[in-house]
Design a protein around this nucleic acid. Structure first.
Length: 583
RNA sequence: GGCCUGGUAGCUCACUGGUAGAGCGCCGCCCUGUCGAGGCGGAUGCCGCGGGUUCGAUUCCCGUCCGGGUCGCCA
């Protein structure tokens, strides 16, 4: 159909007769001579049409086949901005393969188009160079990961997408079953249980680029269906899994010309919380939180008589007008905090602001030095429960980083967060569906305690550490995993602590526990949030940019119009309204 | 679910208590070296939907739907 790709024409093709096929990207008709930019996936080439009758009938995005002779452009007419800019194709024959209706929006890299229009006509949006490049990158990312994992002896295995509803944390998407009215499949939130079964099955090394489904509210970085690079390995400990994960990460960032220094540094969960206030620190800027509870141990200021007092410094923040300081209060309230206490260190070293007059003389003298604030800085404080206070300060740290231009956008800072707590008090995250006990798993119920805790985690559930690890890139959690429990007795003890009795465990996860009766190997794994990874690599600010056909925030697909109502017939056949079989 | 923000021409967006405008695109004509071609002319609007206030509402008020962001939520 064609002899060359448009974007590949070069001066050495001059004199040869070629056939191109592609779309009319732009038309410059001078009457008598017309120039077409013919675009295919490889790029664009200029076609010269001398026949005005032919040229005048062509419109944007007509699909053409053009045959003619390649020649060097006349003196002074080269376009150095284009790879094909030295040559042009003089059309001898133009065949219209198909016509195009007027476009709903211009297919032009210079024009900003609203997202809804783009998604409704995603097939046109993807003709544009930016979105097309994102699809190309995603394909390369998949290929690079497969190459790394293949080289390390991994098997790619597909697991079911119609499966059993298991309590994993998020809400399940459910699918009615025609053949068993009243019974339902669930779409998997992740292949977690299946990949563990594959380890029991002796496959030893598994991976999958797996689609996962969670019925929760969406965000710019979240979709109802999303993709994970899911990895699981047998006969390994944490260092082995992390090493494989790092190989994948290095291969991916190499695609965009970034060399990730290995090994990637590690930070314990506790240290990350203490220094940055969350478990996904953005390490592109150095600013850290400062603990102040000891400093304020004898404070007269009632607000700071709290189990946790922390601070973060805003360089140059003392110069903020009152209005802006008030805006910080609003900002904090929007995050559910009562406010954000602050002290301004004036250029002459005196402390001002509403909080300052509540502090003792000694505190006023020492606080700037304690938190590392210089004259001209603003110090923000949060006091109260450690978790919520740190969360506020972590958000403030990021906001300061953005407003003060502290974040070096060209940097890529990776870190593993290790030694996370194994349990948290039940009810603290509202997740009571898994068990009835006082404790619930932070990660999931199959995460192993670290070796030193495996025989005594019941003694101090609040301090027991999980054999788990998350990888963070520039403040984004891009992956996480754990070493799993492979001993039945340990699993039962974890369930006990979570208030899941043997009967309940059997009912919820029976098939996994049954499998674990037959010599399960020690195993662990990691999963990467694939959409998010590609988003970061592409420099996009939304997952939707790196998904071929994404959904909107309400789970609506503007292209197909899904979800839709179903017919009465479908409803009946699906058995949606059937009563569940009595037990 | 809470909060913020938007919804006006095909697209991007302005204005206005008195029935609407720009740029681009589209259509027509002109034009032989452009490359975001240029010139002249033209068409295009349930001003998201419903209700209220008003002599009169795209504009003000209430509700609702939809988009985007954010908090909750997402092991």
């Amino acid at each position: 159909m064609r002899t060359h790709e448009a974007g590949t024409l070069r001066p050495e093709h001059a004199g040869s007769t070629v056939t191109l096929a592609g779309w009319v990207a732009r038309r410059r008709d001078h009457g008598g001579v017309a120039f077409l930019d013919l675009r295919d996936r490889s790029g664009v080439a200029q076609v010269v049409v001398r026949d005005e009758v032919v040229a005048s009938g062509l419109r944007s995005e007509f699909c053409l086949r053009v045959t003619g002779e390649v020649r060097l452009r006349p003196e002074g007419n080269a376009n150095d901005a284009l790879p094909t800019g030295q040559v042009e194709l003089v059309a001898a024959e133009v065949e219209i393969l198909s016509e195009s209706a007027p476009l709903p929006f211009p297919i032009d890299d210079h024009v900003e188009v609203g997202e809804e229009a783009r998604l409704r006509h995603r097939y046109l949006d993807l003709r544009r160079s930016g979105p097309a490049a994102a699809m190309h990158l995603r394909s390369e990312v998949n290929r690079a990961a497969r190459e790394v994992l293949h080289a390390h002896g991994f098997l790619e295995v597909e697991t079911p997408t119609l499966t059993r509803s298991t309590p994993e944390g998020a809400r399940d998407f459910l699918v009615p079953v025609r053949l068993q009215p009243g019974a339902w499949y669930a779409l998997p939130q992740s292949p977690q249980l299946f990949k563990q079964l594959l380890m029991v099955a002796g496959l030893e090394r598994y991976y999958q680029i797996a689609r996962c489904y969670r019925d929760e509210d969406f965000r710019a970085d979240r979709q109802p269906e999303f993709t994970q690079l899911d990895i699981e390995m047998s006969f390994v400990d944490q260092d082995d899994v992390i090493a494989v994960g790092e190989q994948v990460v290095a291969a991916l960032w190499a695609l965009i010309g970034v060399q990730v220094p290995l090994p990637i540094p590690r930070l314990t969960y506790a240290e990350s919380m203490r220094r940055f206030g969350n478990d996904k620190p953005d390490l592109r800027f150095e600013l850290e939180l400062v603990e102040c509870a000891d400093f304020f141990a004898d404070t007269p200021f009632r607000v700071f008589q709290a189990p946790y007092v922390g601070a973060v410094v805003m360089p140059g923040g003392a110069a903020q007008p009152r209005k802006q300081l008030d805006a910080w209060q609003e900002w904090a309230k929007q995050r559910g905090a009562r406010g954000l206490a602050y002290v301004l260190v004036q250029p002459d070293g005196t402390l001002t602001g509403p909080v300052a007059k509540n502090l003792s003389v000694d505190e006023l003298a020492g606080i700037a030095g304690h938190v590392g604030a210089a004259p001209g800085d603003c110090v923000f404080f949060a006091a109260g429960e450690p978790t919520s206070s740190r969360a506020l300060l972590a958000a403030a740290r990021l906001e300061i980083g953005r407003r003060c231009g502290l974040i070096d956008e060209s940097r890529w800072e990776f870190v593993w967060i290790v030694d996370a707590p194994l349990f948290e008090p039940a009810g603290s995250s509202g997740d009571v569906s898994v068990g009835e006990g006082a404790w619930t798993a932070v990660h999931h119920a199959f995460t192993s305690p670290k070796p030193e805790w495996i025989d005594r985690f019941e003694q101090a559930p609040d301090q027991a550490l999980a054999y788990a690890y998350d990888i963070v890139c520039n403040g984004n959690e891009i992956g996480g995993g754990s070493i799993r429990i492979h001993r039945r007795d340990v699993q039962q003890r974890v369930f006990d602590l979570m208030g899941i009795g043997p009967e309940a465990a059997q009912e919820k996860f029976g098939f996994l526990l049954d499998a674990f009766a037959y010599g399960p190997p020690p195993h662990g794994g990691v999963a990467f949030g694939w959409d998010r990874v590609v988003m970061l690599l592409a420099g996009a600010d939304s997952l939707r940019e790196v998904i071929a056909f994404p959904k909107t925030g309400a789970g609506f697909d503007p292209l197909t119009g899904a979800p839709t109502a179903i017919t009465e017939q479908q409803r009946k056949e699906a058995g949606i309204d059937a009563a569940p079989a009595a037990d």
